[in-house]
Design a protein around this nucleic acid. Structure first.
Lengths: 330, 330
DNA sequence: CTGAAAGCGCTTACAG
DNA sequence: CTGAAAGCGCTTACAG
């Protein structure tokens, strides 16, 4: 598309390409008059450097990559905006790659397209991560707890908050609490569940597998799952711990459909404190995760890794239980 | 970060770099045994081609760029996902660039980083667009109506829908209708306003500038603006046409705060039909824009432009008025 | 202060 | 079927 190169500018200005490069990049001493001549020529020709050529030499792209299969989920934009803003402060642009093709993603990750990576990508397996480690790709994961020389992570303390949320329900007198799980293998899901189990155990309450069902972190699946659970479960629960707010909303809709009330008949707690809660009734008791902070920290740590000012660290962010209207004493 | 190159693979496999390139890309005839040898070597060394070098030659990146200053707005993820999905079908990845630095954006746009661009970027001025036109950068805009040989656009027929929405209010007997505007110079805003004016004119209703105030397409600004409007306006309006759903929500919140009811005291119409309306009460009468379709069409048209199967076209998508609970007869 | 030359990692006619 | 060589657009020691 863009065919004028440094060579054309050089010809136009009557200098060498080396001089054009220096003049335009402000590197090395170049006589002001020459510099001006070059700039005029560049402008006249609408010259824009080809980043491919530039970066092939330069080795640095001043770009951070953010990889994901899809941009769904209500806090996605909060996260990405926080990342973009923080990156901007450090002179980096951010590059969101959306692809369902793992090979494409891996090639791009390992293909020197960006200086560092923020990983939020379930499809990356431990083997992929091992390859990234070996290639010393600077990466900060925000969906798993991990670290190596060049890999860090910024996650929420989901085990702790899962514990706190469950404790809250227990303190209200609930003894049979269902867990609406997200995806297996997903860090936040498993940690939240661990916290839930720990809280139960502390009260010497037993857990049986029919207290857990899948909501897949989304409203619809949780709605369906909850309907089925209410119909078929032998357990008479009085409260639900949902893997996230979306699944809490789905569960509440199902509960209402059965003619029950929240919190009168069932208490329910979510995770995230997403924006749409503002429009939802009853107002949901939930755990607020500092998503914005997570984005910022991830970028800051990534830039440390890129500049080799630090080895990879595991950073854990604290969430906060927000008690609202969806939970009450039994 | 990634230092093993094609040369290392060649040495390991005992062949030339040309052969490595051919074997790995499946180009040209290469003996199966050689191919296997090369693949083994590449695997052993964890070789991943440097995309910079590759693309410098190849001239094509199989990537589409999506440019924006921020990813806010509730339909953003719908749009980007639609774009990503459609691009995937055609073998393209998508690249979301978020940057506040216009120079960075322009360099990237014009720097051959992507094969084509989907523009959704208010900060691009007509001069910038002129440069893109001159450089024959393949682009489809979704925030303005425009076309040239290499530039197309896919927009909503906002003038028409603005007209229809206003007609709806008029048919319910409303004669004084306020317009809560978005940003000046933004296509959808201006078109919606045009449609509004046209509908008023048809009924021989006069418009005066104190019937319009700014909501900036967001909830908060619209809320504040509406409060002020209700307090100070000399006009006794009975209905509001909001620039989008978010500003409609803000207006309704302000109206409620003054002790009025929607639709009993005021009717209100929005635009977009965003997801969170599901949680909002009263259910909002609004214009549903086919956002997903817009993303798909934009990608399809962009790929036509890239393959030079078509010159730039101006594509207009129809919206649909959804009559719900926020409007009623006066 | 300026320029010729080497080289970044790759692909692709062209010879053999 | 394989490889030496040129070249994509740029930067950067190195000479002058």
């Amino acid at each position: 598309m863009n065919k004028i190169t440094i060579r054309d500018v050089a010809k136009e200005a009557g200098v060498s390409i080396a001089t054009v490069s220096k003049a335009l990049n402000g590197i090395d001493v170049v006589r002001p008059s020459t510099k001006e001549k070059v700039e005029k020529a560049a402008q006249k020709l609408h010259y824009v450097p080809n980043l491919m050529g530039k970066q092939l030499k330069g080795k640095t792209t001043k770009m951070l990559g953010f990889y994901t299969t899809s941009m769904t989920g209500p806090y996605f934009s909060t996260l990405v905006n926080a990342i973009a803003q923080e990156a901007g402060k450090h002179g980096y642009g951010i590059n969101v790659f959306i692809s369902y093709d793992k090979q494409v993603v891996l090639n791009s990750i390992l293909g020197n397209v960006v200086d560092g990576i923020i990983g939020f990508e379930d499809m990356l397996t431990p083997e992929d991560v091992a390859a990234m480690k070996q290639e010393k790709v600077k990466t900060v994961f925000i969906d798993r707890k991990i670290s190596s020389e060049t890999i860090g992570s910024v996650v929420f303390d989901s085990s702790k908050t899962g514990y706190l949320a469950t404790k809250h329900l227990l303190s209200l007198g609930h003894k049979k609490i269902a867990y609406i799980s997200g995806y297996d293998g997903v860090y936040d899901n498993e940690e939240r569940f661990k916290g839930y189990l720990k809280a139960l155990k502390e009260e010497n309450l037993s857990f049986s597998s029919d207290l857990i069902y899948s909501g897949y972190f989304e409203e619809k699946a949780s709605y369906e799952g909850t309907k089925k659970f209410l119909e078929t479960s032998p357990q008479k629960v009085t409260a639900f711990l949902a893997g996230n707010d979306l699944s809490a909303i789905g569960a509440i809709k199902a509960i209402k459909e059965f003619g029950y009330d929240v919190p009168k008949d069932y208490s329910i707690v979510g995770f995230d404190d997403i924006d749409i809660l503002e429009y939802f009734s009853p107002s949901l008791t939930t755990v607020k995760n500092p998503i914005q902070l997570q984005g910022e920290m991830a970028v800051k740590h990534l830039i440390q890794l890129i500049n080799e000012q630090s080895v990879g660290k595991e950073i854990e962010l604290k969430g906060k239980l927000l008690i609202r209207q969806s939970t009450k004493k039994i």
